[in-house]
Design a protein around this nucleic acid. Sequence first.
DNA 1: AGCACGCCGACT
DNA 2: GTCGGCGTGCTC
Length: 728
Amino acid sequence: MPIIRVALNVPVDTLFDYQAEDASQHDIGLRACVPFGKKQVTGIILAVSDETQIPVEKLKSAYCIFREIKPLPAALLDLFHFCSQYYHHPLGMVIMNGLPVKLRNNKPVSLKRKPHQYQYSLTSAGKNVELTQIPARNRVARRLLNEFQQAVTLTNPQIKHISPRAEKLLQDWIQLGWITSELCSASTAARVAKTPVLTAEQEIAVNAITAGGKQFNTWLLHGVTGSGKTEVYLRIIESVLAQGRQALVLIPEISLTPQLEGVFRGRFSNVPLVSLHSGLNDTERLTGWLQAESGEAKIILGTRLAVFTPLSDLGVIIVDEEQDSSFKQQDGLRYSARDLAIFRARQNAIPVILGSATPSLESYYNALTNRYRHIRLLSRAVQNATLPLIQCIDTRIHKNQEGLSDPLIQALNQCLQEKHQSLIFINRRGYAPVLLCKSCGWTAPCQRCSSRLVVHLRDKKLRCHHCGHQEQFPRACPQCGNQDIAPFGQGTQRVEETLTAHFPAARILRIDRDSTRRKHAWQEILHAVHTHQVDILIGTQLLSKGHDFPNLSLVGILNADGALYSTDFRASERLFAQLMQVAGRAGRANVAGHVLIQTEFPDHPLYQALQRHDYDALAQTLLAERKIAGFPPYVYQALLRAEAHHIKTVLDFLAQAAQLARPPQAVELFDPVPAHMSRLKGLERAHLLVQSSSRKHLHTFLTGWYAKITTLPSQKVRWVLDVDPLEF
DNA sequence: AGCACGCCGACT
DNA sequence: GTCGGCGTGCTC
């Protein structure tokens, strides 16, 4: 009797063997429903064999093998394998995490007739029907008929949009002979709508990438805001579609998928496009997945999860805003969709394009060292668009009143009078407090690993959250002797109230987690902004993502300094990218943009580079710092993260784990340290850093170490290995 | 992850 | 004398 080896969604890194009389090698990649303990579960068949190591009395029989859809392609299984090994996560969990929910159930999937496929139009009989023949109270019918008279042909989604009841009505009308249906022509030839003329730079980029053809290459498409990266993507996709192949486009989480989707649909109106984002229900997601797998969908647009979509004939992968941290999953399987995209591109021998105005230092470094091909877009594609003027307000000179300085208030006032919109951006990420000398800018460094020490007021100590070193508070600044050293403050609350007090007539809208939680809140907010029902916007992170606010001319930035002296070595990089993005919000179309940054350190290299829009200057500075400090991209890191109800449990666990390790010379193992947000949801969190200048050595070490940690008594500690961690 | 088995405190 | 606490260990 054949044995199937099944990957299940359980946190044990092993396959489970079952008898299956009807199994054959062709079933690898199919779903199987099997008994597991007292339950029945569904997993993926990864091997079929005649023998098993499992004693016969333990071996059970599979209930069934689902054959209603094709097996997962071998390339996708390879991707899951790689992901499991690289991120040290059980294979079964990796696979089940990557599949649509409907494929994880113990049920065969029902293949409904696909939407999109038919288009409907009025027959000559239908054209004779007058609107007045339909009773006025039958509003859905009237609207449907009206739509048909206006639009001539309609598709299922469009009809559904009129009313959920309209589809039922449609069937009735087909019976009456009013409506005919015909198959949509799924033409893969890109019918190109209005195509802008490429700039010389864009043309060079497109030619270079398309000339590479069916060959693996990682391209860093590095273009300033407004340089027209999207147009480059569109041209490359066009050429891929012309070969009948598919394009996978990955975008950050909050970057408002519909907006980009609109651009793609507008340009490739006849090309089947599937959009995979968090707003889909299980059925929609499965449908999209199946369309991608069959090759029916030609463009797949989605967030990080879309990197696991099966694609029968992939021609290019695009990762837009590649520096965005939402490409890295921050819980469970901590994968980077950007890095997996590169793996897939290599696997398929196709180009992958990483696009950004402010690349991650890792990607920039890879471009400098020729591991990636670097393409620059230095000029703006949009006519008349000029870069915004970025200036600093020195808050040591201009006193803050409740967080707002005089020059900023004046600028806001002027903006209001000119009837332009303004935006106040508050940088409110929770940075750990560091010790700072106000007179010379000195901060307490860690001697052992060149990161900054964190102030722990409770026991008056300084601690390194990187290596675990700790020391006493100094009495005075060791650099200049000043006694005025203090933890770096946060402050800046109540900005909205202050603004209201200053500008009682202005319409102020505050955007935060709460105000955007409601389903269509974003749409309403954007609408309000676009129709100029708002004068001043206040917001945080959420606002920096790529929305177009055509009337916005002033951006004020508060509280940015925290990132300059953060213990997170990536904080500067992120701040720069974020401020560049926020600055890009100002003055897009015909309004000149002005950006004012309130800071105590106007001479800081970050602000200097920002004012000159000079990414390279900052990147070079940061890379030099990273090299000296021994931080990525010069080393590869992994983090053993653990959490439990009591901090001692966590630290003991980590200490035990460290005991198990016998790191080779090339690999460095640090002491356990409490995590940045050491208390989250009532759990205490801590971690232990491992790093090496050799990715290979680090990986080999992790594999052995992971196996040993698994054998530890778990003592109610939850732990994960985070490979290439972004947050500490 | 579930879900059992299993050994010690407050209840009818 | 039981009911139930959640610590440990297995699931093919």
